[in-house]
Every structure is written in C-alpha cells, then in structure tokens.
C-alpha cells in the first residue's frame, strides 16, 4: 500500500491496485458512466434540436446538429395545427381525477386490510392481489361492453363510449397496486396509536382520517405520482374510448398528429416535447418518491 497511514486490516475501499492505477480506473469508470448518460439523453437532445429547425435544415444533405437559427414558430404552428390546448387540459383533468380517485379508494381499502379485523380478510386480499398479475388487456373487451351498456345523459351515443368517463370513474373503485402499497405502509404504523384513539372513543373512520392518512403522506405521494404518470402516459384506453378530437388526451392527440403530419419532423418533435415536459418536471421535483416507489414495488412507468 502506498498510503503512509495504511491500517493493519485492508478496508473494502482498498484494492490490490496501486493508488495511481486505481485513480485512472475510477476515472475511466466515471467516464464510461457519463458517456452512457449522454447516450441516454441523445433522443431528448435530438427531439429538442429538431423541434427548432426548419424543414430544409432537417432534410439538408449535410445536416447540422444545432439549428442555425432556432425557429420558435414551430411551437405555435404545432399548437394550432390540432386542438393541443384541449389535449393538454384533458390530460391534466384525467390525470388529476385518477390520482384523487386512487388515493381515496386505495387508502380506504388499505386501511381495512391493515387495521380492521373481519371475516374473509385474507381471501379478499388474495383475490385483489391476484388481479395484479393479470394483464389489463384481458379485460379490455368486457370493460368496453360494460361502458357501452351504461346510459349517459350527455353522450351522442347515449352510453359511455365516446365520453371521458370510462377513463377516470374506475379509478374511484380501488386498485391492487395502490392498495398493496398503502397497506404495507399502514402496517408499519404502530397499532398503539389506533388503540389509544379507540379508547378515547374514536371510530374507525376518525382513526383513518386523523391518524393513518396524515402519517402515510409519503406513501400517498408515491401513489399519487405514479397514478398521475400512468394516466398521463396511457394510450390504449384513450384511443379505445374517445371519439371526438376535442376530448383527446395528449397521447391520443399526438398519435393523430403523427398520422396527419407525416415527415414534418420539427412539428412532430415540438408536439412530443410538449407532451413529455410536464412528466419530466414532475420527475425532477419528486425524484425521491419515484425512486422509492419503484424500489418498493417494482412497478414501472
């Protein structure tokens, strides 16, 4: 060991390599990581630069990386080509409704499974968990048929098809992922708190509202963020249920845009960027909750 104050026992940070070689190796390692990180970012970078180019620049024989002069008009053109403002509002509205619905209904179910004692608790929880491994595409057809049977006062079809309702009402009816996540969290809250409140005459609703919900804020935030992201990025449900362009979400609208503006890459990239920016901002703000949520449950984006 070259270090003058080397301890008797080698610590794990010490390897048999001479120090200088170790530093070089480490630098090389970090270099590869940074290079990989840059590689991961290339599609985003390419999206941004393309969104600011002219069509001539995009198809030039020897294209440049950056636009000679950023063409901000692409964004205005994209925004007005289709009702993007409406898409944006619809995505925000549906993501918010789904988030509220999941946080309320899953936390209620999680409280029952974690705290209350009742017959069939085990089997019911098992049944709920079993729905986790079933691909949701398996129930697409029966759900569609169900929503087609439900009457709707304001829909042109007379039923729920063509309205946004199938895209959020179900969120108020619980879900295996959220219930499981919150139940695990509720189980970690000491039971003595609930017992003490019960002695003081609190009923289960008050215990849920005043003790469990406030203490579970981190887990609730994780569920909220994931639900928001899933709804925001959902594609198959909007294209199945929505008919009127003005009711489209950003993903459905973007797909329509892709079909109508084939090859107009600057506009398409501007549209793609506008639809991913809110999620990127949310991710940067709430990175901790994201990472914890994935590590805890392994559910992906």
């Amino acid at each position: 060991m070259t270090a003058p104050t080397a301890p008797v026992l080698p610590s794990p940070s010490q390897s048999p390599w001479p120090r200088r070689l170790r530093t070089t190796r480490r630098a090389l390692f970090i270099g590869v990581l940074i290079l990989g990180g840059i590689l991961m970012m290339v599609p985003f970078f390419w999206m941004i630069t393309t969104s600011l180019k002219t069509r001539a620049e995009v198809f030039a024989v020897s294209p440049t990386i950056l636009p000679t002069q950023p063409r901000w008009e692409n964004y205005a053109e994209m925004w007005n080509a289709l009702p993007f403002a409406a898409f944006f509002v619809n995505s925000v509205k549906l993501a918010a409704l789904n988030t509220i619905g999941q946080v309320i209904s899953c936390s209620m179910a999680a409280y029952a499974f974690a705290v209350l004692r009742f017959r069939f608790r085990g089997p019911l929880f098992g049944l709920l968990l079993a729905t986790l491994i079933i691909p949701f595409q398996v129930v697409l057809v029966p759900n569609f048929i169900l929503y087609r049977m439900l009457p709707h006062p304001f829909s042109t079809s007379g039923n729920w098809i063509g309205t946004q309702e199938p895209l959020w009402v179900g969120a108020f009816l619980g879900g295996a992922f959220g219930t499981f996540l919150l139940r695990q969290f509720f189980l970690s809250i000491p039971r003595e708190l609930a017992d003490a409140a019960r002695v003081d005459g609190a009923n289960p609703w008050q215990i849920y509202r005043r003790i469990y919900l406030p203490l579970a804020k981190p887990a609730l935030a994780t569920l909220a963020i994931f639900t928001f992201m899933w709804t925001w990025n959902d594609f198959i449900n909007p294209i199945i249920y929505l008919r009127d362009v003005n009711s489209f979400t950003l993903t459905a609208g973007l797909s329509l845009f892709q079909g109508q503006f084939v090859g107009k890459w600057p506009l398409l990239m501007a549209g793609a960027l506008v639809s991913v920016i809110p999620m990127i901002i949310l991710f940067i703000i709430a990175q901790r909750q994201f990472v914890r949520g994935i590590a805890m449950t392994g559910i992906k984006g």
């Binding site: 999206m47 594609f235 993903t251 797909s255 991913v276």
Partner: peptide, 24 residues
C-alpha cells in the same frame, strides 16, 4: 445527475418517445 439521465426515459410517454425514435 448521471442517475437522473438513466431514469428520465422511464417517466416519459412511450407514444412521444416512439415518435422521436421513429425520427431517429
């Protein structure tokens, strides 16, 4: 920061991202 670079694609919609890859 390096980790963020690797995580970022996870949160973006596949529709938008696939559009970018179609262009790539």
């Amino acid at each position: 920061w390096i980790r963020t670079a690797y995580f970022l694609p996870v949160v973006t919609s596949t529709i938008a991202i696939a559009l970018v890859w179609q262009w790539i």
